[in-house]
């Protein structure tokens, strides 16, 4: 046989893409768990003031430095992040459930329901995000409760739209219509065909809500409309450190800020790797 020209070669990576994605996912989950757990164990250290260790630059003993009361910034940051993560989870759970219910309702109960929900979505999306957050949080008396509800109430519309679209699409799928004509009960069709189609979208949407929730919680708190100073969320740490920035204590803001950023990116990594694991379009890469 003559030589064969290779026209296109798929190079198999040593780790296949799915393994890689799974590893990313596990990495993100483990790291976030570590932050949350270590943060809640740091409660004592985070509030211990030490007059002999005020305003220290980052060092081996205090990797993130210490603040004007001699508190260890690493402990404070972890504690702050763990509070933020808890709030983020609470807010996104509520938000996602809201989105799920409204999305399914909009798609299943006729034009009027759809119009009402679409109107709600537009109202929420139409008001500037931060303004809405501020108003709700303020009206509910700020604090943990105010922040969670404010974030939950303002974050559902996008996911609700996705769910609505998915339900509409699956309702029109020939195989769903055929199942009905074969005498399948509506409930059974919902369980066998619709839920398995929608759930992955829901799960990914839910995880991708996290980073928004965490960031917005921090923003609200930073502006003074969120958590109270006695709940040292990451936003509180950042806003307090603002006063000391002009004194040259850059580490008070830089490390907590970077930590917040990486937490948010970790959640994003978790969501997008999960999506590429369950999304059929990227399934074969």
């Amino acid at each position: 046989m003559t030589d064969i020209t290779i026209l296109q070669q798929y190079k198999k990576p040593r780790l296949n893409q799915r393994h890689k994605t799974l590893i990313y996912f596990i990495f993100a989950v483990v790291l976030l768990l570590c932050i949350a757990i270590s943060g809640s164990l740091m409660g004592e250290i985070a509030i211990t003031t030490r007059s002999d260790a005020k305003n220290l630059l980052p060092s081996m003993a205090h990797p993130f430095g210490t603040d004007w009361l001699g508190r260890d910034m690493l402990a404070r940051t972890l504690k702050g992040l763990s509070i933020s993560i808890v709030i983020g989870i609470l807010a996104s759970v509520i938000s996602a459930i809201l989105a799920g219910i409204l999305g399914v309702l909009a798609a299943s109960f006729g034009k009027k329901t759809d119009a009402v929900i679409e109107f709600l979505i537009n109202v929420v999306l139409g008001i500037p995000h931060l303004l809405l957050l501020l108003l709700i949080s303020y009206a509910l008396g700020k604090g943990m409760f105010g922040v969670v509800i404010a974030v939950a109430v303002s974050h559902w519309p996008m996911l609700a739209r996705v769910i609505r679209g998915e339900v509409l699409a699956i309702k029109e799928a020939p195989y769903v219509k055929i199942a009905k004509k074969l005498g399948q009960h509506n409930l059974k069709i919902a369980r066998k065909h619709m839920l398995p189609h929608i759930f992955p979208q829901f799960l990914v949407g839910f995880i991708l809500l996290f980073p928004h929730a965490v960031l917005h919680e921090a923003a609200l708190t930073f502006l003074g409309f969120g958590l109270k100073p006695e709940q040292p969320g990451i936003g509180i740490i950042l806003s307090e450190s603002m006063k000391y920035l002009s004194l040259g204590m850059w580490w008070l803001a830089v490390f907590p800020g970077l930590a917040l950023l990486s937490t948010v990116l970790l959640f994003d990594l978790m969501g997008s790797s999960l999506r590429s694991l369950i999304d059929p379009h990227s399934a074969n890469k």
């Binding site: 003559t2 030589d3 064969i4 020209t5 290779i6 026209l7 296109q8 070669q9 798929y10 074969n284 890469k285």
Partner: peptide
Amino acid sequence: LPPNSTACGNI
């Protein structure tokens, strides 16, 4: 061809 494919032959 999609990226996950390998093609060879003399054209």
